[in-house]
Nucleic acid binder design. Structure first.
Lengths: 150, 150
DNA sequence: TTCCCTGCAAAGTTTTTGCACTCAT
DNA sequence: ATGAGTGCAAAAACTTTGCAGGGAA
């Protein structure tokens, strides 16, 4: 990923260009994602992480901010089937990555592959369905849990 | 798909073999899925469909039955991102199918492809992650909505 | 100053649970 | 007859909304 400061600038610009305000709450939440780039945070996760730095922030604000940032394409919203939405910085323009979800401990890791791009043309021909995005998850057991379980 | 009566027998056997009872509620729900094999029904969908034939059935029973049938591998639980789980007859042993979800009207159609099987070996080598299942969704616009939108 | 944004509390949605009663086996 | 299964209502879990007050531009 590029330099943190640079990313932060790009995001602030995108907010301003859409006439959204750069409130301290939004800044704090953004910083939380930058500080936890490896994780896939839920609203509740963000809420507790932010509580230290910003004890007065409301949970509703977290939800509204995540919504907004996802709408602006800054964050990507994921559903890993654990009952809540989880967010990460959007990487639509980079290499396509998919998620490996451990059925035992719930850890989410990643896997890069472009294989599916070629499929989208096939789908358009066969099904007349115009694909704009795809979502591929692999469910199984991470290395740690494989040894734990047996 | 095979003969309806045959499927029904297989399912009843699987219930009995696990010492679950074949209650009229469960029969009604199963029949509902057989009568709507092309659809991906939510608990609420099943509930309203069943209401005609069985007005006294409770929603909790529908949830519990869908859970049970999914656990037994009779139904497959899907998350299409519309805020509720949707079920269809499980086809784990047949050709792998993936879902095409229309972002406009929400219609879910299907697409068959085995491409991903080969990927799972690559993932085990590269990430030491033991894949047991995968879930691939394509998001886009169905033929109908493509013309409607432009 | 303007009105976007926020915190709070209340409500919404989907799903689960507790409990006493009922029925398939 | 017996415990799995059921309906009902209440609760749980996550998220959204309404509103009055507050702060970024």
């Amino acid at each position: 990923m590029a330099d943190e400061q640079e990313i932060y600038q790009v995001i602030c610009d995108r907010l301003r260009n859409n006439s959204y305000k750069l409130t301290p709450q939004r800044q704090t939440i953004l910083r939380t994602f930058m500080d936890n780039a490896a994780r896939h945070l839920s609203a509740e996760d963000v809420y507790s992480l932010v509580k230290h730095e910003y004890p007065d922030m409301g949970l509703a604000t977290v939800y509204r901010t995540l919504d907004l940032l996802a709408e602006l394409g800054i964050l990507q919203k994921n559903d890993f089937g654990d009952g809540c939405s989880r967010y990460e910085f959007s990487r639509k323009n980079e290499h396509h990555h998919h998620h490996l979800i451990c059925l035992n401990c719930g850890e989410v890791s990643e896997f890069d592959d472009d294989l599916l791009e070629s499929l989208e043309a096939v789908i358009f021909k066969r099904n007349h369905f115009k694909v704009v995005d795809h979502d591929l998850k692999f469910l199984g057991y991470c290395q740690k849990c494989q040894s734990t379980l047996e």
